[in-house]
Amino acid sequence: MDSPPEQREIKTYYTTVDKVFRGFVSSAALFSLVVLILIAAFLLFRGFEIFADYGLKFITTSKWDIGNPEDPSTAVLGIGAMLVGSVLTAFIAIAVAVPFAIAAALFIEYYAPRFLRTLLTAVLDLVAAIPSVIYGIWGYVVLLPLVEDWSATLYKYLNWFPLFNVQTPIFGRSPLLAGLLLAVMILPIVTSVAREVYGQAPRDLVDASYALGGTKWAGIKTVVLPFGKSGLVGGAMLGLGRAMGETVAVYLTLNLVFKVNFQILASSGGNVASLIANKFGEATAYELKGLMAAGLVLFLVTLLVNFFATVIVNRSRKIV
């Protein structure tokens, strides 16, 4: 009895040209890895003295005082209030943007007429590319007076609620304003992720819901929304990362005050990125190291948020 012949192993042999080509492309592709590592390494290198001096206190202290410019030992640097501000404004942005993003994504994907759908998808990409400095100047000139009005009304009727209370009823460049502006800024990206995920919802299940006599909303509620849940979470986290790293828009719409502030109507706050832009101009050598350290913290936090966001978004894409 002959045993069946062994299956041949198929091997690819590359020519010299291809070996060079593959090596070249591979090394170019690793550029992003190199850059990410270099960013972390250099910010750590330049800001190392700060971490050595303050340790964890750097991210819990809420004070930025360079003391005597000649003598670094009199300085007290800490980005606690800025971290709180970053998170606070980013969460306001998410809380406002996500419901609207869901509605906009559903509208574009399931309610808009066909010609409008392609147009709106293009508009969404376009709006996402409007530079942040233009959002910033619009927020500063157009949105600021409006939000001042709304803040006054909120304060008048809801000041018993701790979030809407302030010591002195002066509203202006508050976390609410910055948060709303960030909401407008991240809406396109959250919407386009949500739209993409909702568009991949199994069409036959939606049709089945129609066939059972269900309404359009029934189909969306039972099929599309549950299907798109994880993708939406990923999109929202992408938006969160953007909102936390935003510099110029927050710089223009939020008063930089080094105090932990949860009163979203008070004109006091700041985020890590706007701190860097604000202090960079006339920073002393030691302060500059502090800014590098702050940049490293911001980099690591946004990288972490983006890491999870990317994992979630990719997983929700893979289901299809």
Binding site: A29, L36, G245, G295, F299, T310
Partner: peptide, 23 residues
């Protein structure tokens, strides 16, 4: 590589600036 590129798109623009400043 794909994952890192996506992660890189989330690098805050000010951090990119700070990195180039530092180098």
């Amino acid at each position: 590589v794909r994952f890192l590129t996506q992660a890189m798109s989330g690098v805050p623009s000010i951090v990119a600036g700070l990195f180039i400043y530092a180098t």
